[in-house]
């Protein structure tokens, strides 16, 4: 069983291996710096469907099927699938996965869902509740835009702090196996809120949650950033990434964007040429960067010890209209190529 270490962290006692993974993106992702790392890039962001919600569902299904195919599995080999997305009632996941016949655990952590679903899936396997689990999340620029902001054809201007919801999905398959990389530890976050109300500055709203979860993980495991090759946050973007460094600095934890820290939202697109303002966001951002870039680099041993902290802003359009500030959460998973219990 996973052992609780410190107050907040769970350490896996069994080798929870990431046996397969896949990343799917669309046009904008195909024009970004990580394009070559993706398994599937569909230039048509409708994915052949007649609504954006259906498009996202289809994209998520493609991501799961690709991960199954790469690992030579079928749906029957998977005990549980932990999945989530940004849409109301998580319909991208429920409709996307409805035909797969896998026991479904729907999760909502906004853009933090990928780390959350991997965490939950790992604990299921660790506790022998499942032999093999899948975890998947997705986001689609168009479905998110029409739900959270404005119709796509509406002429609005985005401020420089706004982020661009990725049209992407990432899925992983986990099982107990002696094959790196492994999920070594999970730290689920608490809900943090430092009073940011600007829905066009999500990075600022989420940075305190990332800082809190990281701080707790380092304290619980008695480690420092130096123990890891790279620390990745989910989608803090330009503003949030800088705020995270400043927040941790106050606790004497040193993250440097030139050295040991980066944000998936800063990796997916070219901020100078792609008109995405402060960077990428959405469940699909961290999930697709994890599955297209981070995990393959671990397989190739370019990275051996990685912290992946996905952050989510937990507001809705209703809470925003009622003038509420934006609460956020950050979940951390520690992925390593070595396992010694």
């Amino acid at each position: 069983m996973a052992v609780k270490q410190g107050k907040h962290s769970l350490i896996m006692q069994k080798p929870i291996s990431v046996v397969s993974y896949a990343a799917v993106g669309s046009k904008k992702e195909s024009e970004g710096p990580l394009a070559n790392n993706f398994d599937i890039l569909n230039a048509d962001s409708t994915f052949g469907e007649d609504s954006w919600e259906k498009a996202e569902s289809t994209m998520q299904k493609i991501a799961v099927k690709k991960a199954l195919e790469k690992g030579s599995y079928t749906e029957k080999d998977i005990d549980y699938i932990c999945a989530g997305d940004l849409l109301n009632q998580c319909i991208s996941s429920t409709y996307g996965l409805r035909d797969l016949g896998i026991q479904f655990i729907g999760l909502y952590g906004a853009c933090s869902t990928m780390a959350e679903s991997i965490g939950v899936a790992s604990i299921f396997i660790e506790s022998s509740a499942a032999k093999r689990c899948a975890a998947v999340t997705s986001s689609h620029f168009c479905s998110a835009e029409r739900q959270f902001r404005f119709p796509l054809e509406y002429g609005g201007q985005r401020p420089p702090t706004a982020q661009w919801t990725a049209t992407a999905s990432g899925s992983v398959i986990l099982e107990e196996k002696n094959e790196p990389p492994y999920i070594r530890a999970v730290t689920f976050g608490t809900i943090e809120d430092l009073g940011i109300k600007d829905a066009n500055n999500m990075g600022a709203a989420m940075a305190p949650a990332a800082a809190m979860t990281l701080k707790r993980f380092f304290k619980d495991t008695k480690t420092t950033p130096d123990n890891y090759d790279m620390i990745f946050t989910g989608d803090l973007g330009k503003v949030g990434a800088q705020l995270l460094c400043e927040l941790l600095q106050r606790d004497n934890i040193k993250l440097s964007q030139d050295k040991n820290y980066t944000d998936c939202g800063l990796m997916l697109y070219d901020l100078n040429t792609q008109d995405v303002h402060a960077g990428a966001s959405g469940c699909g951002c961290s999930a697709s960067v994890l599955c297209s870039t981070i995990l393959p680099q671990m397989k190739e041993k370019k990275l051996n010890d990685v912290l992946f902290i996905a952050t989510g802003a937990l507001m809705s359009t209703t809470s925003a209209q009622q003038g509420e500030s934006i609460p956020s959460v950050a979940h951390l998973i520690y992925i390593s190529n070595s396992f010694n219990s």
Partner: peptide, 23 residues
């Protein structure tokens, strides 16, 4: 860190709109 302090820090880090172009 309290909310006021964080709000100030956020304002410092967040880029403003390029009004000299926008207007």
């Amino acid at each position: 860190m309290d909310k006021q302090e964080y709000s100030k820090l956020t304002d410092k880090v967040s880029q403003n709109s390029k009004s000299y172009l926008n207007i």
